[in-house]
């Protein structure tokens, strides 16, 4: 059944910015984002508690223009605690109009952190994460 799926926007601000290394940019102050941070930081919508880890709905988006010369090239979804770390990587072009992807991923049971990386063609990679507790693992 296509359509009819509603996912509450439970989080628009990532819960963690403790990425190591300078290659992944994260905001210095989550409460006071600069304009550059605001347009690059991925937004993750994922319930804090997932009942069924076999199908966890996730929405990733970036408030970034999709101009011919300045756009989001890719959005990648990962959980390093899972056996299959990378869920998927969405390669975009300016024709997408907006950097947005909704899908359903598999998560193993217990507490984990879902990471999303957005890559801008001019300003590099930006990482955000969201903590999640999975009641029944789905790997």
């Amino acid at each position: 059944m296509v359509g009819g799926l509603t996912i509450p926007l439970l989080s628009v601000i990532p819960s963690s910015n403790d990425a190591h290394g300078a290659v992944f940019q994260t905001p210095k102050d989550l409460e006071n984002l600069t304009e550059l941070e605001r347009i690059h930081l991925p937004k993750i919508s994922l319930p804090p508690v997932v009942e069924d880890g076999a199908s966890a709905s996730i929405v990733c988006s970036v408030d970034h223009p999709m101009d011919e010369d300045h756009y989001i090239k890719s959005i990648q979804i990962m959980n390093f605690a899972d056996p299959i770390v990378i869920k998927g990587k969405f390669f975009l072009t300016p024709v997408n109009g907006e950097a947005y992807l909704s899908t359903q991923i598999r998560l193993s049971g217990g507490e984990g952190t879902v990471w999303v990386i957005a890559e801008c063609n001019k300003h590099g990679k930006w990482a955000a994460s969201k903590k999640v507790t999975v009641a029944a693992g789905g790997c």
Partner: peptide
């Protein structure tokens, strides 16, 4: 490709 960016979670 399918290799994750471990720089996110493993320190230098």
């Amino acid at each position: 490709s399918d290799m994750p960016p471990w720089g996110l979670v493993l320190s230098e």
